[in-house]
Simulated scan of single mutants.
Amino acid sequence: MPTARNHPATTRTEAGPAAVRRRALDGLPEVDRPTEVSTGDAQALSTALFARLETLEEGTPEHAYVRNTLVELNVSLVKFAARRFRNRVEPTEDIIQVGTIGLIKAIDRFETGRDVEFSAFALPTIVGEMKRFFRDTSWAVQVPRRLQELRIELAKAVDTLEQRLGRRPTRAELAAHLHLDEESVAEGEQASNGYVARSLDTPAGDDETAETAGARRLGAEERAFELIEALESLKPLIAGLDARDRRILELRFGEELTQAQIGERLGLSQMHISRLLTRVLDELRTGLLEDASNR
């Protein structure tokens, strides 16, 4: 369990960051380094923090503290989701920033009364935000890196202010939030017009085939990652697999080994691992479909 500090209850008259933290947590442990917490501890802490979040008034420093802690505890979900787009030309940092917007949306929408783990609830929102970013954004004209980064900051600011104001923010409100002048905001908005869908018929370079080029532009995904978005339904299906099949899944998606590396570990050929992995994934996918049809 991560290093934590329990605090006694304090009065509302106390001020300062330490007092805000104590009031926000109301006896829950304070996590020194949320991003370094193990997956299991993050899930347990998130469950407690979501219950606490529901008791706090939105817009208060206490609510903001708990909400921000939840973001830090679960940012690993964003990094996990970003792996499926590792072949994109966009920088990973940008993809993670966009995915974090999806994480924040999921935190704001999550209800503890629903019989579902937060990770299973959040991943589709995070991935959806990334896909929308790719769908809406491929630079068709050369735009300076400064303006590309400004566009991302504008998108985050619009989302934050929309939630706070209940409407789309004005240019003046965006400028104040980002500590910019309105002219700079207008420049960033204009730069967004340079983002259009790139044609799939664009000729590939000499060092790549049309197939790999198309996959690179679209963000090629492993077929298996779509299964990760159904974590709750997958658990009993995975439990029903034999030990070798579970081990192959662990090596492929837990340790991220290649099929050849898995073969070396298990004393099998890469081709054999490929056939086994395809069979296991098809079984899981079929199981999910059957489960959905029986609901």
Score class of each variant (00 low, 15 high):
209 T>R: 01
184 S>D: 11
201 D>Q: 10
188 G>E: 05
223 R>I: 02
201 D>W: 04
173 E>W: 10
173 E>Q: 13
209 T>K: 02
176 A>W: 02
192 S>D: 15
195 Y>W: 03
231 L>G: 15
232 E>W: 08
198 R>L: 15
206 D>Y: 06
183 E>N: 12
194 G>H: 01
202 T>W: 10
177 H>Y: 04
194 G>W: 00
198 R>V: 15
227 L>Y: 01
211 E>W: 09
206 D>G: 06
208 E>A: 11
223 R>D: 15
230 A>Y: 11
234 L>V: 05
226 E>F: 07
209 T>H: 01
210 A>S: 13
233 S>R: 15
170 T>Y: 09
181 D>P: 00
182 E>T: 02
200 L>S: 09
176 A>M: 06
205 G>W: 08
171 R>G: 13
182 E>M: 14
178 L>A: 07
201 D>V: 08
177 H>V: 00
225 F>H: 09
219 G>K: 10
175 A>D: 02
215 A>W: 00
197 A>W: 12
215 A>F: 05
176 A>R: 13
214 G>R: 03
188 G>F: 00
219 G>Q: 04
171 R>D: 14
225 F>I: 08
200 L>R: 10
170 T>V: 07
188 G>I: 02
236 P>C: 08
208 E>Y: 12
180 L>D: 07
233 S>M: 14
199 S>K: 04
178 L>T: 08
175 A>E: 01
217 R>E: 02
213 A>T: 10
195 Y>I: 09
211 E>N: 02
218 L>T: 13
212 T>H: 07
192 S>Q: 10
193 N>M: 14
173 E>C: 03
186 A>F: 08
200 L>M: 15
231 L>P: 00
203 P>T: 12
194 G>D: 00
200 L>F: 15
220 A>H: 09
231 L>N: 05
179 H>N: 09
194 G>E: 03
220 A>E: 14
201 D>G: 03
189 E>F: 12
173 E>G: 08
216 R>D: 06
225 F>C: 00
217 R>G: 02
188 G>R: 00
222 E>Q: 07
236 P>V: 06
232 E>R: 14
181 D>I: 02
195 Y>K: 09
174 L>F: 09
